[in-house]
């Protein structure tokens, strides 16, 4: 445990001045901005509706279907890329710390970063609502939002994405190529479009985040459950695979 904390503290310092760190704030901000402009632009159309709901569902779906899977791909690839390009694996794995702690620290760091993004997303939704209540009073955003609901949705999406987090951490650590990691992530997200209509859609990992806020309780539960359990299994298997390999 002490070793894991030490490895985490070491990881956190590596984030200084990185694009990966900025992306934690930029990625949710882009999604918020998009939904903000939809509401701002078409205020007449949305006036009189459950505007907080529109904001919340709009933001969450763009985030869960599209932004989050790609964001996870990018963050894991950037973080592992620091080690690949610095040729640091041989240094890290020759230190007197268990190899699994190096792997676990990487995974936990990305998990932490995505969690922060999730919080930023919720805060952003509230901020966007507040701003719209001033700029577009006719939307009636001054009524208070259902904060619990907002936070719950974001957290469920996050939990369901664990499987992608674990998978991409493994891919990015196992293979040096940024293009490979990015390709896998983009392909996964792209095929989600087709899988969403199909019956296997509920077993397709790249759909788990969006399924986690599905109106069908069965789909929702399955996505979160498989997201967490699948994530744990892939995390352990990935770690096992990487720590036993020859270090380049």
């Amino acid at each position: 445990m002490k070793q894991l904390l030490a490895a985490l503290s070491s990881e956190s310092l590596k984030l200084k001045r990185t694009l990966a760190l900025w992306m934690v704030f930029i990625a949710p901000f882009i999604v918020i901005l998009l939904q903000f402009f939809i509401l701002y632009d078409r205020a007449k159309f949305f006036a009189g509706r459950d505007v907080w709901g529109v904001l919340m569902y709009g933001v969450t779906s763009i985030w869960a279907i599209f932004m989050l899977p790609l964001f996870i791909t990018l963050e894991t690839a950037l973080l592992s890329g620091l080690e690949h390009s610095g040729q640091s694996w041989k240094h890290l794995f020759a230190q007197p710390v268990p190899r699994w702690s190096v792997y676990a620290a990487k995974l936990l760091t990305v998990m932490g970063m995505i969690l922060v993004s999730t919080v930023v997303l919720v805060l952003g939704e509230m901020g966007a609502g507040k701003l719209l209540s001033v700029l577009r009073p006719e939307l009636r955003f001054h009524e208070s939002p259902n904060l619990t609901m907002m936070a719950r949705m974001a957290i469920m999406v996050y939990l369901a994405s664990w499987i992608l987090l674990a998978f991409h951490t493994w891919v990015s650590m196992r293979w040096k190529s940024f293009a490979l990691a990015a390709g896998v992530g983009v392909a996964g997200t792209f095929f989600a479009v087709f899988a969403s209509g199909a019956r296997i859609g509920k077993f397709y990992p790249w759909l788990f985040p969006v399924n986690a806020v599905s109106t069908s309780p069965e789909r929702m539960k399955l996505a979160i459950l498989l997201g967490i359990i699948g994530g744990a299994i892939i995390a352990v298997a990935g770690c096992w695979n990487v720590v036993r390999r020859d270090v380049e």
């Binding site: 310092l13 590596k14 200084k16 001045r17 990185t18 620091l82 390009s85 610095g86 040729q87 640091s88 694996w89 041989k90 240094h91 890290l92 020759a94």
Partner: peptide, 11 residues
């Protein structure tokens, strides 16, 4: 120190 040093350029 194996081959080239393992360094983070951004630090």
């Amino acid at each position: 120190l194996v081959e080239t040093p393992s360094l983070y350029n951004h630090l």
